[in-house]
Design a binder for these strands. Structure first.
Lengths: 220, 220
DNA sequence: GTCTATAGACGGATAGAC
DNA sequence: GTCTATCCGTCTATAGAC
């Protein structure tokens, strides 16, 4: 009568993290109560405080669990590219793929929770919750620094400030493409018949076009 | 002892709307209580329910107040462009400016609340609150349809689906550029010395570069 | 480690005086 | 229209039995 491979993690900690990730993505932090989390995870209400200490610490752990993997995968790819290039500057398209493509591949994982997490991350960028913001900035800084340095080398003729801005714009386009597509659908229902696998190549060509666009008048 | 021009609107309704707009932008809907709103607006707690009926109806009115202006300004600009062109397809750059440039000009209004509202709008796109989403979709649909039609005519060689996606990506880049810049600052503090007036030209050239990018392999 | 029970604060909404 | 006072539900967190 037992399933050979239990779908739901038996361990309480993971079940809470999975439930919290999903509910935070759907309803935000303030819109998600402990009771919703423990209800979905089918664990006792007191379990969250026992295992994580508080709701805030749970939020941090939800991010920590996946963010390290994501950024390590990005850096590993960048390392591989740099080793391959042997000191020469990289192609911008490869750098963009290593950073944004890696995130998109994580977002394509619909079963393991990668998609849910990337949606959550996307909506969190525009939620200026003080302590989550600081936490994310710290977790991200090393990775972002490495990629910016690579872009500076790859585009020596472009001012650093300009590259910084374009990196920022690319983050926005990607976050919104992931978090906003099944959320808002401003153009109602227009993406319903769309193959989700086509998102990545479409977005990548958009990002590269933006990154390589001619500089604005008076821009530096 | 009286100010000649009172800074704060005397009228209760407007004070509530202003306070709610600011607090929703800062803390989200669930993170903002009636008591916070009425406290900041310096009106009585019961005033919200008297003037708006409920918190949900207040949220709707916060959007309604500015969204109509924004989209009418966009459509007026599009009308002017189309009248000027006299039946010929428009240049993509003009269309993009009419839609996104108009929003950026609203976001540049730091005193009148335009900036606050655009930040709020940006964060709301990634907050899949059921009833706000539907409300926004309705308020937006006419305007988006008109601009999509203009883009279809302006770029006859590009598939409609592709244009739809790129419009979506542009929305994301802009929303995030406005809502995320003073919120997250992933690259900590790096934008502090930046002139906010430079955002618009930088973003516009990025958007156009993305819109005109070569199509992805296998894209339609 | 898991549970029940509850403390103590805060949420939205409203009744009724002025 | 504005105010006070209050209802009643939900929230996070914790104490203490098992």
């Amino acid at each position: 009568m037992r399933d050979d491979i239990p779908r739901v993690p038996a361990d309480t900690r993971s079940r809470i993290l999975d439930a919290a990730e999903l509910l935070f993505k759907e309803h935000g932090f303030d819109g998600t109560s402990m009771r919703m989390i423990t209800g979905l995870a089918a664990v006792n209400l007191a379990a969250v405080n026992y295992h994580f200490g508080s709701k805030e610490l749970l939020i941090q752990d939800v991010f920590r669990r996946r963010l390290a993997d994501l950024n390590n995968a990005r850096l590993a790819r960048l390392d591989a590219l740099e080793a391959e290039a042997g000191g020469a500057p990289l192609k911008p398209s490869r750098i963009v793929d290593a950073f944004f493509g890696t995130a998109l591949r994580m977002a394509a994982d619909m079963e393991g929770g990668g998609h849910t997490f990337m949606c959550l991350l996307g909506r969190t960028y525009t939620e200026p919750n003080e302590f989550v913001r600081k936490f994310l900035a710290e977790e991200y800084s090393e990775c972002v620094e490495r990629f910016l340095a690579a872009l500076y080398r790859a585009l020596p003729e472009v001012e650093h400030t300009e590259i910084l801005w374009r990196f920022h714009f690319m983050m926005g386009a990607m976050s919104y493409a992931i978090a906003g597509t099944d959320a808002l659908q401003l153009v109602t229902g227009k993406f319903d018949d769309e193959d989700p696998d086509r998102l990545a190549p479409r977005l990548m060509s958009f990002l590269l076009g933006g990154l390589r666009a001619p500089l604005a008048d008076g821009g530096n």
